[in-house]
C-alpha cells in the first residue's frame, strides 16, 4: 500500500533520523505514515524526548572533587616545572 513503512519500521527510522537525514523518499513515506497513525506520532515524539533526556542526564554528572583537586594540582605543577619556585602572586 503506497510502500508505506510499517509501525515497526517507523520506530526504527525515527531513531535513524535523529542521527542523519533519511533519503527524501523514505522521509516522505515516513511523514505519510505519521499523518495517519496516532500511535507512531506518539512514539516518535517520545523517541525524541528520550534522546534529549539521555543527553540531559549525561550532562548532569558532576566531577568528584578529589579527581578535580588532583588534576588542578597537576595543572599547576605542570605550569611550574620548578615547584620550588612557585608563583604565588595571586
Amino acid at each position: 500500500m503506497l510502500g508505506l513503512p510499517s509501525c515497526k519500521q517507523v520506530s526504527e527510522q525515527c531513531s535513524y533520523q535523529l542521527d542523519e537525514d533519511l533519503p527524501m523518499l523514505k522521509r516522505a513515506r515516513l511523514k505519510l505514515h505519521l499523518a495517519i497513525c496516532e500511535q507512531c506520532r506518539r512514539y516518535v515524539k517520545q523517541m525524541k524526548l528520550t534522546d534529549a533526556s539521555v543527553r540531559y542526564w549525561v550532562r548532569g554528572r558532576r566531577m568528584p572533587s578529589e579527581v578535580k583537586q588532583q588534576l588542578l594540582t597537576q595543572f599547576q605543577e605542570m605550569n611550574n616545572p620548578d615547584t620550588g619556585k612557585k608563583d604565588d602572586s595571586q
Binding site: S15, L18, D19, Y43, Q46, M47, T50, S53, V54
Partner: peptide, 10 residues
C-alpha cells in the same frame, strides 16, 4: 545499536 538502546530507554 542506537535504535535498540534508545528504544530500551524509551
Amino acid at each position: 545499536l542506537l535504535h535498540r538502546a534508545r528504544d530500551k530507554v524509551l
